[in-house]
Amino acid sequence: TETAWISLVTALHLVLGLSAVLGLLLLRWQF
């Protein structure tokens, strides 16, 4: 169904966004 796909895509986007923010924070901490 479409709702399942939409929720799955939004979850993936949230995970990608969180990982990107965490990566930037880690880079700032290291340097």
Rank of each mutant, 00 (worst) to 15 (best):
T1P: 00
T1A: 00
T1S: 00
T1I: 00
E2Q: 09
E2T: 07
E2H: 15
E2I: 13
E2M: 04
T3C: 06
T3Q: 08
T3F: 09
T3A: 06
T3K: 07
T3R: 13
T3M: 08
T3P: 04
T3L: 11
T3Y: 08
T3N: 03
A4G: 02
A4W: 08
A4M: 13
A4N: 13
A4F: 10
A4H: 13
A4I: 09
A4Q: 05
A4T: 06
A4D: 09
A4R: 15
A4S: 12
A4C: 08
A4V: 06
W5E: 08
W5Y: 03
W5N: 11
W5I: 13
W5G: 01
W5K: 09
W5A: 08
W5P: 13
W5M: 03
W5L: 13
W5S: 15
W5Q: 13
W5F: 05
I6Q: 13
I6E: 06
I6R: 08
I6V: 05
I6M: 07
I6T: 09
I6P: 14
I6K: 06
I6G: 11
I6W: 15
S7V: 01
S7I: 01
S7L: 01
S7R: 14
S7C: 00
S7E: 09
S7P: 11
S7Q: 14
L8Y: 07
L8D: 15
L8A: 15
L8K: 08
L8T: 12
V9Y: 11
V9P: 10
V9I: 06
V9G: 08
V9S: 12
V9N: 15
V9T: 14
V9A: 12
V9L: 06
V9R: 11
T10H: 13
T10W: 11
T10I: 07
T10C: 14
T10G: 11
T10A: 03
T10N: 02
T10E: 11
A11P: 12
A11T: 10
A11N: 09
A11V: 03
A11K: 13
A11D: 04
A11I: 12
A11H: 11
A11M: 07
L12W: 00
L12P: 09
L12V: 06
L12N: 10
L12G: 08
L12M: 01
L12E: 01
L12I: 05
L12H: 13
L12C: 14
H13L: 14
H13V: 11
H13S: 09
H13R: 05
H13Y: 04
H13T: 14
H13A: 09
H13Q: 02
H13E: 07
L14Q: 10
L14P: 05
L14T: 08
L14D: 03
L14S: 09
L14F: 07
L14W: 07
V15K: 02
V15H: 10
V15A: 00
V15I: 10
V15S: 00
V15C: 01
V15F: 03
V15M: 01
L16E: 05
L16W: 06
L16Q: 02
L16H: 01
L16Y: 02
L16K: 03
L16R: 04
L16V: 03
L16D: 04
L16M: 01
L16C: 00
L16G: 05
G17P: 15
G17D: 05
G17A: 05
G17I: 04
G17S: 03
G17C: 02
G17V: 09
G17Y: 07
G17T: 08
G17K: 09
G17M: 10
L18N: 10
L18E: 08
L18R: 08
L18H: 03
L18V: 05
L18M: 04
L18G: 12
L18S: 13
S19P: 11
S19M: 15
S19E: 08
S19I: 04
S19A: 05
S19V: 12
S19H: 04
S19R: 05
S19N: 00
S19F: 13
S19D: 00
A20S: 14
A20H: 14
A20E: 06
A20N: 05
A20Y: 05
A20G: 06
A20T: 08
A20P: 11
V21C: 11
V21Y: 02
V21R: 12
V21A: 10
V21K: 15
V21Q: 10
V21G: 04
V21L: 04
V21P: 15
V21H: 11
L22R: 05
L22K: 02
L22V: 12
L22S: 14
L22N: 10
L22M: 03
G23P: 15
G23H: 03
G23F: 03
G23R: 04
G23A: 01
G23E: 11
G23Q: 11
G23Y: 12
G23N: 03
G23W: 12
G23K: 15
G23V: 02
G23L: 06
G23T: 11
L24A: 14
L24K: 08
L24H: 10
L24V: 04
L24R: 03
L24T: 08
L24M: 07
L24S: 14
L24I: 10
L24F: 04
L24N: 13
L24P: 07
L24E: 09
L24W: 15
L25N: 12
L25K: 00
L25V: 13
L25A: 13
L25H: 03
L25W: 12
L25E: 11
L26K: 14
L26F: 13
L26M: 02
L26T: 15
L27V: 06
L27M: 04
L27I: 08
L27A: 11
L27W: 01
L27K: 09
L27H: 05
L27C: 00
L27S: 12
L27P: 07
L27Y: 12
L27G: 07
R28W: 01
R28D: 14
R28F: 09
R28M: 04
R28T: 07
R28Q: 13
R28C: 10
R28V: 11
W29Y: 00
W29P: 01
W29Q: 00
W29T: 00
W29F: 01
W29N: 00
W29M: 00
W29I: 00
W29H: 00
Q30R: 06
Q30P: 13
Q30G: 15
Q30D: 10
Q30I: 02
Q30C: 11
Q30N: 08
Q30Y: 04
Q30H: 01
Q30T: 02
Q30M: 03
F31L: 00
F31S: 00
F31C: 00
F31V: 00
F31I: 00
